[in-house]
Design a binder for these strands. Structure first.
Lengths: 297, 297
DNA sequence: ACAATAGTGTCTATCAGACAGTATATA
DNA sequence: TATATACTGTCTGATAGACACTATTGT
């Protein structure tokens, strides 16, 4: 086909005369919320350790937000996708490669980066505690795993002319061994007969750079939303694990206690039993499971 | 605080000397999958019309993909968000403003635009049939509503060394009064013990520009995924509607017949009854409902 | 009267919540 | 033997699927 456009050019001729316009373009960064799960120290030889959900943050060594904590991320380069940029960041910061990675949302608020026009295409990565040990003492970078909690603080519903506005305030707490960051993120849903729109905003923020609190909140909500309907949580588990450990991971993600019997029924088809058991636990040993990669349902 | 960075600069000094680097930046477009629902002509005075799910496409008047059909979209400008750009496009093409709009996914495959480096931040918009009539005879633009079907063609599961690869082929059919486009999109999920990754690709494509078939497939999957858990489908309904109409909309989205009694129970809390009824229908009149904006659950 | 749709009642299978009960390793 | 956890059985209430039944208009 040699269709001619309104200037009478074929496609070949069009490309020959085409030049990239000099209108302004944004920078695009890929930022990654890297989750893992760690154990607390056990209280006694008998008690099981508890699980903590952790996120990797990096202390900024330059302006802006010098000294604040930011998500691992970097600019997307020509000839790579945003996903490849995310994988690159992930490998640089954790040395890990074979992980669950999912695109979350693209943040483009005007002024979100005080330097220049920067959008952030954000990703969520889940890495299991087996892999995480590998790169503890990092190169110069000041990277730390922060324990994460995300909890509903306040909920409001206000009726307006022909609809309502629902506001939910969530408290995001991040704490490392040395430092604690607390941020409040607000979630506003405006519902009218023909439309529903939702906006996120940061109510208060100490110690987190840019709009990264929003990105983290977005990641936790995605994780919570998917955990009940997919096997996503299994990517946070080591190769072999007990069902109690898996339940603890669900509980720490959902910030909610679950009933043992119902939980086991629910995840039964996601896992496959092995012939291995825990040992030296001070109580009855527990069967070890692995992720089920065979046919199910 | 007057923290100094590694060059001994305060934040103010840093911004004074900061200049936007001249490394390459992508263009970012906002592309919108605009859904609506229309009625077919009724067969007889008694029969109810059927519902069709439709998407708005625009015929390209320039290279590349001259003559092909593309999603409404345009480049994001400085001092606006991707969402504002999507709203702008929506208003330009449909004259409509007060709609449901949701960000879908950011596509950044290398070479997805043959001209230059362009990412697409895609959105889905739902507009109801009340609003759609407004802008039928458009300005010069060649915009058409295409009837949409999206159906699983083939499903494969292949076991590899330590996991599996699952492939699903979907057929996307778009048809207007004059033209029919058929595209096959493939969905590959590679699952290994520690990771799961999913990629979309276009298997065959006739008449759709760029990677817009992927974007449309992504939109339909999002719509199907949400329709059962949210009131999203109500944004496709006019102000007043019957429960049978609502059921037809669910059915056309899900491409699946539903049982009447169960459907009515399920949506009961999403709608509010009015005192209005259909008239002159050739059969028992039907109560009209509206979207429930009050308290529920 | 009849065609076509509107709307309801109810049986059943399934599944999550709840809780109690039995099982078993180690200091 | 005591402690702490592992694991199972079963009752109950809620809900989706299935299907039949009644109701009501316009021609």
């Amino acid at each position: 086909m040699n269709l001619l456009d309104r200037d009478g050019l074929t496609e070949r001729e069009f490309f020959e005369q085409y030049h990239v316009g000099d209108y302004e373009r944004p920078s695009v960064a890929a930022d990654v919320v890297i989750f893992t799960v760690t154990n607390t120290e056990a209280d006694s030889y008998r008690k099981l350790p508890e699980k903590e959900l952790r996120i990797l943050l990096i202390r900024r060594g330059g302006h802006p937000f010098l000294g604040s904590w930011a998500l691992p991320g970097g600019f997307v380069r020509p000839n790579e996708t945003t996903e490849q940029a995310a994988v690159r960041e992930l490998r640089e910061e954790t040395g890990v490669d074979d992980v669950y990675l999912e695109q979350l949302y693209t943040f483009s608020d005007v002024g979100r980066d005080p330097r220049t026009w920067v959008m952030s295409c954000s990703y969520m990565a889940l890495i299991n505690s087996d892999q995480v040990q590998l790169k503890a003492g990092d190169d110069a970078v000041d990277a730390t795993w922060f324990k994460t909690t995300y909890r509903l603080l306040r909920e409001r519903k206000e009726f307006i002319e022909d609809g309502f506005v629902k506001t939910m305030e969530y408290e995001l707490k991040l704490s490392s061994e040395e430092e604690g960051l607390t941020t409040v993120v607000e979630w506003t849903m405006t519902s009218k007969p023909a439309s529903t729109s939702t906006t996120y905003s940061i109510v208060s923020n100490h110690g987190l750079a840019f709009d990264h609190a929003k990105i983290i909140a977005c990641a936790i909500e995605r994780l919570r939303g998917k955990v009940n309907f997919t096997d996503i949580a299994l990517h946070l588990m080591p190769h072999l694990f007990t069902l109690t450990e898996l339940q603890q991971v669900y509980e720490v993600i959902l910030d909610k206690e679950l009933l043992k019997a119902a939980f086991r029924r629910k995840v039964a088809y996601l896992v496959a039993e092995t012939d291995h058991y825990t040992e030296n636990a001070g109580h009855r040993p527990s069967r070890l499971f692995r992720r089920n990669l065979e046919e199910y349902r």
